Amino acid sequence: MSETILANEPILRLSVFLGILIAMAIWEVAAPRRRIEIPRVIRWTNNLGVVVLDTIIVRLTFPIAAVWLAILARDNGWGLFNIFEAPEWVAILASIVILDFAIYLQHVIFHAVPVLWRLHRMHHADQAIDVTTGLRFHPVEILLSMGIKLAAVLALGPPAVAVLIFEVLLNGTAMFNHSNIRLPEKVDRVLRLFVVTPDMHRVHHSINPKETDSNFGFNLPWWDRLLGTYIAQPEKGHEDMTIGFEQFRTVRDQWLDRMLIQPFLGPASGPDPRYRKNDDDQE
């Protein structure tokens, strides 16, 4: 079974990606949580353009994907689960949970270290939040994230199928919890006990720094609760909260070329008095 899944990795990844992207996009139109002022064609064209650029750069820089590195680690006896034997199902579940915790810690670090925050804030500079926001990350951040993931795989020695499941889950839940969809309050309350929901993660995209530095989880919601970084609801409510970052507040800032140079502009945080909004920027 595992070998069949691994053999069809590209098709599986693409199918899940397109399936969730389309499903969330339809849901956002049918039952939106917030009104989005910026035309979808502008945000989607540029956010998805980042995805294409990221994919090309990662494939050129890291020809060995995390899944195949896990296979290489197994064949050479590298990593924890290749040194100490455990039932396959235990190794799979434990690997998914540990890798998810590693991503949580990485996310916290990218907020705490100014030079890394400069990269990550491109994700937060989206003035709205929908399914495409979950795919909008600076190429340099993606490369660093991939390097961290590969290091974790080498140290952990997880089953290859566990890495594939984790990556598919991470990608899928990132699109889900960034989606501009409305869930019934009771459903959200129960669901966020097991997975990060859109209302839970939306708090993280508030312009309020205290709320920005909360709810770091992408997949599992437990780490925020256990480590004190959980905020249940935004202070101003989901409809009235301001999404985004204090700099980069024009529509022009949502274009791909502007997004790529954002790490080099202005201070690491807070408003930039040098940042001018001229008429061209508003177009």
Rank of each mutant, 00 (worst) to 15 (best):
Y104K: 08
R182N: 12
D188W: 04
V161M: 07
A102Y: 11
G134I: 06
V108Y: 08
H201A: 01
Y104G: 03
A125M: 07
P114V: 05
Y104M: 07
D188G: 09
V108R: 11
G134R: 03
G172N: 09
R121S: 03
A128E: 14
H201F: 05
G157M: 07
V195A: 12
A125R: 04
P198D: 09
L154W: 11
W117H: 07
K186E: 14
H178K: 12
S145T: 15
M175W: 04
T173P: 01
M200C: 10
I98N: 00
F110K: 01
V140S: 11
A155C: 14
D100A: 12
V196T: 13
V187W: 10
V168Y: 04
G147A: 13
H107D: 06
V113K: 11
G147D: 11
S145K: 13
G134Y: 08
L191T: 11
M175N: 04
R121Y: 02
H123G: 05
S179Q: 10
V168E: 02
N171I: 08
S145I: 06
M175I: 15
H138Q: 10
V195S: 11
L150S: 13
I96G: 00
G157Q: 05
V113F: 11
F176K: 03
I129M: 15
T197M: 07
K149C: 05
R118S: 09
P184F: 07
A94Q: 05
V195W: 06
R136H: 08
T173M: 13
